[in-house]
Computed example of a mutant assay.
Amino acid sequence: MGRGSAVVVVVLASLLLMVVHTQMASAATYIVGDRSGWTFNTVAWPNGKRFRAGDTLVFKYNRVAHNVVVVNKTGYNSCKTPRGSKVYQSGNDQIRLAKGENYFICNYVGHCESGMKIAVTAV
């Protein structure tokens, strides 16, 4: 490899690192439900917020009384947990948003139906 090729490789690697760093630096962290946390009637919490792929949602809740389940649109609309869904139960769950639609429910009996669910679109 000639000296010019090495310079090109270094410049390209530097640009790649800058892009990755910029994307990481722009990721935001949101506490779902703000001060109230992940609880009943949280369904409207995402309204008016702009989410990006890579942002982190933090679900804070009493782990004895609730959970967080990542579901698909059908699971969200029906308040049913599809087979193979990821269930979080720590009471302080951090979930990174994927690009597109992201759906979350509490699958304890009656909780999702009481508004303990959110749909988040990440660009």
Rank of each mutant, 00 (worst) to 15 (best):
L12Y: 02
M1C: 14
D93S: 08
A53I: 00
P46V: 00
T39E: 06
S26R: 15
R50W: 03
M24W: 12
A25M: 13
F59D: 04
T121Y: 13
N102M: 00
M116K: 12
C79T: 13
G91M: 05
A27Q: 08
F104L: 12
L97M: 00
T39H: 14
W45R: 11
I95P: 01
A25E: 09
S114V: 04
T121P: 02
H66V: 01
V10K: 10
G110L: 07
K117G: 02
V69G: 02
N47S: 10
G75S: 10
V71T: 01
D34T: 10
G4C: 05
A44Q: 06
S90D: 04
I31D: 02
R52G: 00
A53N: 00
M18E: 13
K86C: 02
G115Q: 05
S26K: 12
T39L: 08
W45D: 01
S90R: 12
G54Y: 01
Y108V: 06
S14F: 08
W38D: 00
I95G: 02
E101D: 13
T81K: 03
S36N: 14
F59T: 09
L12R: 10
C112E: 13
M18I: 15
G2P: 04
V109G: 13
N72F: 01
G110V: 06
N102G: 09
A65W: 06
G37D: 02
T56L: 10
A25Q: 14
K86A: 10
T74L: 04
V71N: 02
V8H: 04
M24A: 14
I118G: 10
M116H: 05
N62V: 13
E113T: 09
I105K: 01
N47I: 10
G75N: 07
R3E: 15
F40A: 13
F40D: 11
K86F: 08
N92P: 08
E101T: 04
Y108P: 01
Q89D: 10
L17R: 00
H111S: 07
N67K: 12
V68A: 06
T74Q: 09
G2D: 14
Y103S: 06
Y76W: 14
